[in-house]
């Protein structure tokens, strides 16, 4: 984990001053996803093409005739960021080989929300990862269909109240656990998978930089706090992201060629209640529910630590 003392002094030297995702977009106040995209673009630099799935970030950034993007950018539809990205990557590769464009590497980065990644875009993502394109896919996971009004997705956590899975006298909100998408992508044998959060900006940017250099498929899962959908005050966006990590609800780690590494040394996890209680979407949960979530988080965290401890990288296994 990159902890920086005297952050104000060093940050300007560590971060590209260029704004590739410009101010003036229409994201909600306190949007973690917009912040994450801004940071991602700074880490990627100018030799990048962005492929955007339909969703919040597409809607807020390119209302015709305006655009917030100072990078080449394309949006086609909701489920196909990974397949459009595959086409862009294939085209740049072949055009470069044929001498039709300048001979330099342009990184193609497909981005989507959790709906466009876990659910409707999952097949396209799996296909692109399997085909091995030189493509970075970044999922900005705000744990529901926020653009359409906070509906349940495969990424919505257990117990969260959404507009299609609301809490009520006969409902505790979502009754199922969140899909572990990072593990599913790792099972495609891609060389680099990482989890990240905008509340740890340098860690996220370093992971983006690392993925950018991989000549092949890579995946970053960025937890993106949505104050509107999570029912948290806008000024608590960063705090909520930190609590997700500190409670072990959303651990930060990397999987590099099969080798798991924790990004943050955490001797003791905070109780999940610290994370849940600041969010309106969990307001209805009883101590029993919270106990159930705590048990699950403990188990998932142990499973992860077990992998960190016991799994070897591919090269180690090859001997």
């Amino acid at each position: 984990m990159n902890t920086v003392k005297n952050f104000d002094l060093y940050a300007p030297r560590l971060v590209d001053k260029e704004e590739y995702f410009a101010a003036g977009h229409r994201a909600c106040s306190g949007c973690g996803e917009a912040l994450a995209i801004r940071l991602m673009c700074k880490a990627l630099g100018e030799d990048t093409v962005i492929v955007n799935a339909t969703g919040c970030m597409e809607v807020v950034s390119v209302m015709y005739p305006t655009t917030a993007w100072n990078l080449p950018w394309i949006h086609v539809a909701f489920p196909n960021a990974a397949s459009v990205g595959s086409g862009v990557e294939a085209a740049l590769k072949v055009l470069r080989r044929k001498g039709k464009i300048a001979d330099r590497r342009i990184k193609v980065v497909a981005i989507g929300g959790d709906g466009g990644t876990f659910d409707i875009g999952f097949q396209a993502l799996s296909g692109a990862m399997e085909r091995g394109h030189d493509l970075l896919y970044v999922c900005f996971d705000n744990e529901a269909y926020m653009n359409t009004g906070i509906q349940r997705s495969g990424a919505t956590p257990f117990g969260a109240s959404t507009t299609t899975n609301p809490a009520g006298a006969a409902s505790q909100g979502k009754n199922e656990w969140k899909k572990n998408i990072a593990e599913i992508i790792a099972a495609h044998n891609v060389p680099y998978v990482a989890t990240a959060c905008h509340s740890y900006p340098l860690d996220f940017m370093n992971k983006v930089k690392k993925a950018r250099e991989i000549e092949g498929p890579s995946y970053i899962h960025c937890l993106s706090v949505c104050p509107t959908g999570w029912r948290v005050p806008t000024e608590d966006c960063i705090k909520a992201g930190r609590l997700a990590v500190e409670t072990g609800v959303f651990p930060l780690y990397e999987i590099e060629e099969g080798k798991y590494t924790m990004s943050l040394a955490q001797e003791k996890l905070r109780p999940v209640e610290d994370y849940l209680k600041i969010q309106g979407r969990f307001r209805h949960l009883t101590p029993d529910h919270i106990g159930k979530i705590q048990k699950r988080v403990n188990l998932e965290y142990k499973k992860l630590l077990d992998k960190v401890e016991n799994l070897h990288s591919w090269s180690e296994l090859e001997g």
């Binding site: 397949s83 595959s86 086409g87 990557e89 085209a91 072949v94 055009l95």
Partner: peptide, 28 residues
Amino acid sequence: IDTDFICVESEHSALSACCGASGAGARA
């Protein structure tokens, strides 16, 4: 011919990949 042939996982992705390729200036 010097062509990148993408064996996509669906027709939805076939046309989507063509959109990306054509958007990047390729004949698709």
